[in-house]
């Protein structure tokens, strides 16, 4: 397939993905806005005012970057896992598999679809947060780079999950039992400096902690960890997951017989 044709195939997949999640906006775009709005009201206004300051910022200021990142992570992941599993389940993935579209274009198309939804939801949540606090950005390049890379990682992870999933239960296991606990314990709501040394060390094994803190650094200029580790770790995850997903596609694992 020529480069121009690959570009057409890629834009077809991305367009289809964007049309899909915007068509069902009540299921995809509205819920995170409501959930995050409630978080801002409860943790920011009601409880947050009693918590006081966290690392030199009001609690609502502290919690906003974490909540934005949480919605980016959840939406990037769930977009790809549900969309790709959906086409696998309905067998419409065969439309792509019988075509000359290369595997890396298929993967890139779905990842960009997931990134689009993750970033769009992140942007909407950011707008909602502006009703509760004044956001000033410490470093725009760091903020954009880490949120984009994180969306890529979780889109790839969603793709990986969808390839292996056989039932709809299989696509909810990872978000429920792995992603949600890691996100909640990943420094979204607190600074790990509040934890005893042992739990601080345990927390440092959680990759989401690095992503949330790097993003918080981009916005507030504070972090519990060295953000270089965050960028390095995210990059490693991107490379690793890309290689694994491409291998799965090349082998046709659970896609071809």
């Amino acid at each position: 397939m020529k480069m121009a044709e690959q570009w057409i195939a890629l834009s077809t997949i991305v367009r289809k993905e964007i049309v899909r999640f915007t068509r069902i906006w009540v299921q995809t775009l509205l819920p995170p806005v409501i959930t995050m709005g409630l978080y801002f009201v409860i943790f920011g206004q009601l409880i947050g005012s009693r918590i006081g300051q966290m690392d030199g910022f009001s609690y609502v200021e502290f919690v906003v970057p974490g909540l934005i990142m949480m919605s980016v992570i959840t939406n990037s992941y769930s977009n790809v896992v549900s969309s790709f599993f959906g086409v696998k389940f309905q067998k419409s993935v065969e439309e792509l598999l019988v075509s000359p579209t290369p595997n890396y274009i298929i993967l890139l198309g779905y990842v960009l679809g997931g990134v689009s939804r993750g970033l769009l939801v992140g942007f909407i949540v950011t707008l909602v947060s502006s009703f509760f606090t004044d956001l000033t950005i410490h470093s725009l390049p760091i903020t954009i780079a880490i949120v984009f890379m994180t969306a890529v990682v979780f889109s790839l992870a969603g793709f990986f999950n969808a390839v292996f999933a056989r039932t709809f239960d299989d696509i909810s296991i990872v978000p429920t039992f792995i992603l949600t606990p890691l996100t909640y314990l990943g420094g979204v709501f607190y600074s790990i400096s509040l934890l005893p040394p042992f739990w601080q060390s345990v927390s440092q094994l959680n990759p989401i902690l690095y992503m949330v803190n790097a993003f918080r650094y981009g916005i507030l200029g504070i972090s519990d960890i060295n953000i270089n580790y965050a960028f390095f770790g995210v990059l490693v995850f991107i490379i690793l997951l890309t290689v694994i997903c491409l291998r799965l596609l090349a082998r046709g694992t659970r896609l071809r017989s």
């Binding site: 044709e5 057409i8 195939a9 289809k16």
Partner: peptide
């Protein structure tokens, strides 16, 4: 229509 048009896209046909 989208099903047919998208399939064309997967074969590299301009929209």
């Amino acid at each position: 229509a989208d099903i047919v048009i998208n399939q064309g896209g997967y074969y590299g046909l301009p929209r």
